[in-house]
Each structure stands twice: as C-alpha cells, then as structure tokens.
Design a protein around this nucleic acid. Structure first.
Lengths: 224, 224
DNA sequence: ACCAACCACATTGCATGCAATGCGTTGACA
DNA sequence: TGTCAACGCATTGCATGCAATGTGGTTGGT
C-alpha cells in the first residue's frame, strides 16, 4: 500500500497541489486550468480536483475567481509581511507557553534537529537546511501543547514559504542564521520565554530583510 | 438582484451551512447527509454541496470521514479552550498594534457600536447584544491593520461561537461583561496597548468561566 | 485607422448516473 | 442462545454531459 493511497482522490490531489504550490513548482499567479491539471494528476476527473481546489482556496493557497478559474495565490510584499507578522506573533505566544510546558524529551528532539541542521549547513545542503530549519520552528510551536495554534501556524508558514525560500540559491546570511538558532535553542533549554520570544522575532526580521529584496526583484521582473 | 445571489451556488451553500453551524441550528456532532441537506437548500445538487463541505472542513467547522460522510465539528472542552487561548493571543497581538495604528474615525465607530451594545443590554435584546459584542472585538482586531490576522481571528471565533453563546439563555454575568467592555473601550481610546491586552484577556477568561459550565452540562446531557 | 458589437471557442458551474464503500439485518451454524 | 458471515440497503466517491459564463478575434461601421 503506497503512502499516497492515504485517503481518497480529492485528498491526494489536494496534497499534491499543496506541495507543488509550497515548493514553488506552481509559481504565484499561475493559472490552474481544471482540465489541464487533471491530465497531470493521473487523469483524475474534474470533480475531485475542484473539491481539492476549494479546500486550498479556504487555506489561502489558491485564489478562485467565479467563472474565471483558479490561480496560485499571488501575495504582495505587504501581504507577505502581514502573514510574517502573524507568524512572529504566533511563535511569540507559543514560545512563552512552550518554555512552561515542553518536556525535556521534546527539547532533546529539537536539539537533535538542531545538530542535523548544523550538519546540513556544514555540508552545504541548502534544501535540507531549510526543511530542518522549518521543522525546528514548528516543533517549538508544537511545544506549546496547543493543537489549534500548531495548525494555524503551519498553514500560515505554508502560505509564505515559497516567498521566504524560493530565490535563496545563494546562502546569504546563512552563518548568521545558524548562530541565531544556537541562541534560540539555548533560550529554549533555559526555558526563558521572554528571551526566546525576542530571539525568534529578531531571527525572522533578519531573515525577511534578506528575502524581501529577492521577492521584490522577482516581482519587478514579473512586470518587466 | 437579491443579496443572496452573491456568487455561485457553492458559495451560497457554504455561507448558509456556515451560518447554520455558527448559530447552532446544526448542533455539534450532527450528521450532514448530502442528499438530505440538499433538499433543504433549494434542492441544489450534491456537487456544489460537496464542494462547500470541503471548504467548511478546511475551516474546521465540519469533520469529514472518508466514505462515512460529514458531521458538524464537535469540540471537546480542551479543544474549545485551545481555540480560546488562541483567540486571546491573537487579540493581544492585535490590541498592541491597534493602539498604535487605529484611526480616530475607527475608534469613533467602535464607540458607536459600544453605545448600541449598551442599548441592547438595557432593552434585554440578548442576541443583538451578542452580535454587537462580537463585532466590537472584531473591529478592535481589524484596527491592527493586518488582514490576515483579521481573517484568522474571525475563523477562530466562528469555530467556538456556538460554545460560548449557545446555552446563554440567562444573562448571567451580563452587567459585569458590559462593565468590562467600558474599560476596554476606555483603554483603546487611551491607546494603552498593554492594558487593553490584559483587559481583553481577563474579559475572555471571565466569560469562559461561565460558559464552560454550560458546555460541560450540555456534553454530559449528550452522554446521558 | 480606430472603435464597437457580435460570434465562435474555451472554460467553468452544475446535475445526474454509476461504481464502491460502509452499515444494519438476517440467517445459519456452533 | 450467542456469534459470525453474507446479503441488501443507503450513502459517499467519482466521472461525464450539458448549460452558462467569460474571452478573444473578426467584421462592420464611422
């Protein structure tokens, strides 16, 4: 039983499309023609595909215009910044709860991820680094023990992931980000919620300062 | 052009179902049979209805089990509390931003709502009171000027609205809540973000302390 | 030469029909 | 009498066909 047979065709289609959008295979603004996409997804019919699109629209990943079809959600700089502000806020809330409630075992798991991230950094495996980095943040949020918070945080991250990582072929700021993560893990181990909160806020602010320029360039190229 | 022809039948069905769930016309755990519900919704076919259900599932308002159909999402006490904690957190984030960014005109609008709420209180119009109350909170959040925050806040409120207001036939705590709202509006006028945040937190905590008992009774009755 | 109305094509929106899955019931056997 | 298996019904899952809407191109007029 392949892992993908998890659930019905609607769920599979939604998962595949979600992944393609998050990874950037389908760029923002890209039209999603029902018939065209259906041929790329095992030739499944339009009905489950439409259901999947409606779900992704509710998640904010695609935009559906009545009688005009679906497109991959294209966010403006300020919309990305709004979502990023939300993410920082959610992480801040989670950080303080996490420092009170997280177990030593969970902290160990995060430390293990942290070491994996260091390895990926040392070996120059950029995509692995990004993925582990994201997982660390998610696990810190999960540490707050609030499933709804975790869900919303994950959904918000998915919406802007492409904007934060897409153009980052070069590892500008990479060493700096790793150093910040060292501090973050230390603050978590010390269970210093207020400090953790501020470190996370600064970490995201610094990261966006770099990514923003790439996104701006990309948007300008799109116009030109 | 009737106001309901806003959008296509999927959107209309979603809006109606959403309203029915939030208002409690469809109680938590209620099975939503596609064919049965379709007859209650102008006899529209199952296809747009299914699309609407998928959207509501993505919003967390309904729960879909593969091959077993949809039910109105039934939340446990702790799930309601998780969402409430999230709401309090989001309001707190919004409160500090709102105190920096909100315009005097928006404050005036909130004050006007506040007076309407007082009127509803004086005249004993409970449902009007609830609705205006909710709108005040939403407008405070909107005052932060972050659309994504506003959207997520609204969605979270929708998920637990029924649990907070459903059983409140009697107006326990009503006068107390109005007094708290007076303080809240004052803090907003003074643009005291930290105070506003704490007032909102206390307001929700006090409100839930009462509503929780009603929800617990309801859940126990359901078992018995 | 430019603009506007019209027509044909492509795409989405929706209804219906059939296949597949789950559930309740009945009947037989231990 | 209790339990398990097989059958039938009801419901969901999906594909397809038709109607409605939007789009682009062409033609006719000014």
């Amino acid at each position: 039983m392949p892992e993908n047979s998890h659930g019905n065709r609607t769920q599979i289609a939604a998962a595949k499309l979600r992944q393609m959008i998050i990874a950037g295979d389908l760029p923002p603004g890209q039209r999603i023609s029902e018939r065209e996409i259906s041929t790329h997804l095992d030739g499944l019919s339009r009905t489950p595909l439409r259901e999947a699109l409606k779900m992704l629209a509710a998640e904010g990943l695609v935009c559906i215009s009545p009688n005009r079809g679906a497109t991959v959600a294209a966010l403006s700089i300020s919309e990305v910044e709004d979502i990023l502000e939300l993410i920082v806020g959610l992480e801040g809330l989670a950080a303080e709860r996490a420092c009170q409630r997280i177990s030593d075992a969970e902290i160990s798991e995060i430390e293990a991820l942290h070491r994996l991230m260091h390895d990926a950094f040392r070996d120059g495996r950029l995509m692995d680094y990004f993925e582990i980095n994201q997982r660390i943040h998610q696990e810190i949020v999960d540490g707050a023990g609030n499933r709804e918070l975790s869900r919303i945080y994950a959904a918000a991250c998915a919406r802007i992931q492409r904007y934060r990582y897409a153009g980052n072929r070069r590892h500008e700021r990479w060493d700096r980000a790793v150093a910040e993560h060292d501090q973050i893990v230390t603050a978590l181990k010390d269970r210093d919620g207020a400090l953790l909160r501020e470190l996370l806020r600064a970490h995201h602010r610094n990261g966006w300062r770099v990514a923003r320029i790439l996104v701006e360039n990309e948007l300008n190229e799109g116009k030109a």
